[in-house]
Nucleic acid binder design. Structure first.
Lengths: 187, 187
DNA sequence: TGTACATCAGTGAACGCGCGTTCACTGATGTAC
DNA sequence: TGTACATCAGTGAACGCGCGTTCACTGATGTAC
């Protein structure tokens, strides 16, 4: 097996990406160092060559999850449509970590919470910019962004709870339409 | 100590209420049977005289948490104001279990998810009724209720993540004002 | 009302298990000559 | 280019711990006479 220094960076990356997916699918608490290492074909002992502790890994994995689920800067309409889509709802492991992990982060330790805090603010800024591109004063754009982000995160999380596919779809559709109506320039 | 049959019902109730609070504060995964029993001044072995398993307790505790955080049927304005208040944000242990546990429930087993599903629908119905009291057709009321519930749940969860008190307050205020504007009859 | 006895709520030791973490080790990598 | 050696990525046994669950038990409750 690989023991080169180049391999090491690769291993770290694979561990981190797997962790980023697993926490979004199963929650922060459910992540097990043993299972995680097994899932990237390594033994558990090697973990501590890459991370100082499980707790450190969690903060880094959350950062990674939030970074790669960050929506590309886009205009408001496409952003809302893609966020509140069935495909996003059905793939939490690669989707927005705010929607899957906000409550987990709120009750986690300081370092994890700081990461989530920063990315929530980042998301609000992106949405505010998309809205400010046309029409609004900055102040109004921030308030509207807070509303849009709340509704998007809430709707996605709740759509994953609803068992009846029709109701789950209705949740996404109702919020999508409501938010699109906020932005007069939405196509 | 009490060994009467009357005491038993009381013990069960105390265990359940404690569990309902603990899961809202620390998440479903974090609940430990040992710690829970210790927190109600009983020994861990006695747990199985009241519940078949930890998993069974979780479903019952979630039901209990959702039931006692159920907002009284009220008109829309006061409901929104109390839901999106600082005091609600600052006491998750006695607050809405949807906001603290929706993602946890989405990845939990069938029985837990069913409980959450049912109460989300219940919440939507209550809000739809509050909105339908004045003005709207039922269809429109349901869609507006889906929007209001998403935004309330999302805003409460996110306000608990934001570290800066001003930003956390701004989150609550922006969504509160947006939702109150939806209902022309709000005082 | 008082005694004898069955019930059963709650106790606490014991179980097997998986956890996070440590550490002496192996053997491929990659450098020095 | 070929050999000798240091490095260090990854291995896997071992640690102490808390978990969910079981079970033989204790002793207060409450019933029968």
């Amino acid at each position: 097996m690989g023991h080169s220094q180049a391999d090491k960076a690769g291993s770290r990356e694979r561990i981190l990406k797997q962790a980023a997916q697993q926490i979004r699918e199963a929650g922060l608490e459910s992540l097990s160092v043993n299972k995680l290492m097994r899932s990237v074909d390594l033994t558990h002992g090697g973990f501590y060559g890459h991370f100082a502790s499980r707790s450190d890994l969690l903060a880094e994995a959350l950062e990674s999850a939030l970074a790669d689920s960050q929506l590309k800067a886009r205009s408001f309409g496409p952003m809302v449509r893609s966020y509140l889509s069935r495909s996003h709802r059905d793939s939490p492991g690669t989707g927005c970590a705010i929607a899957s992990l906000a409550p987990d982060a709120a009750r986690a330790d300081e370092s994890v919470r700081e990461v989530m805090d920063r990315h929530v603010e980042g998301f609000v800024t992106i949405v505010a910019n998309a809205l400010a591109l046309h029409e609004m004063a900055d102040e109004g754009a921030d308030d509207e962004a807070l509303v849009a982000v709340s509704a998007m995160v809430g709707a996605l999380a709740l759509s994953r709870v609803l068992t009846d596919p029709k109701r789950s779809d209705a949740m996404l559709r109702a919020v999508r339409e409501h938010l699109l109506a906020l932005d007069p320039q939405a196509e």
